[in-house]
Design a protein around this nucleic acid. Sequence first.
DNA 1: GCTTTGACACTAA
DNA 2: CTTAGTGCCAAAG
Length: 111
Amino acid sequence: MGKGFDERCYALLQEIPSGRVTTYKEIAHALGAKAYRAVGNAMNKNPYPKESHPCHRVVRRDGSVGGYAEGTSEKIKLLTDEGLVIKEERVVDFQKIVMRADEFGKASNAR
DNA sequence: GCTTTGACACTAA
DNA sequence: CTTAGTGCCAAAG
């Protein structure tokens, strides 16, 4: 069953709790791939509502906010509204709230 | 099936 | 610290 790569990215979005973020690379790594580029592309094409698939919680690996289909400022706005602190387009205490690849699937059924 | 496209990552300067 | 250049991968044309 080879689901599309993007579909698997969308599935992981649902596991990101409010107030936390992840990176394009961590998502790719969680899928066993290194296609961080493709992850970003998938987010851009994200057909699901952001309420269920919070693609705005995906940032760059260095803690910078990164891009967003509706604009970077809108992305910052959404993150700030979730309690995060953004300074100079960078997530404050990024390392403390970032989700690592091995944290995905924790609450789900273990394989 | 080859070419183009990017909401990225990494290294070097 | 910033800038530029290269690598990377899957999806879409």
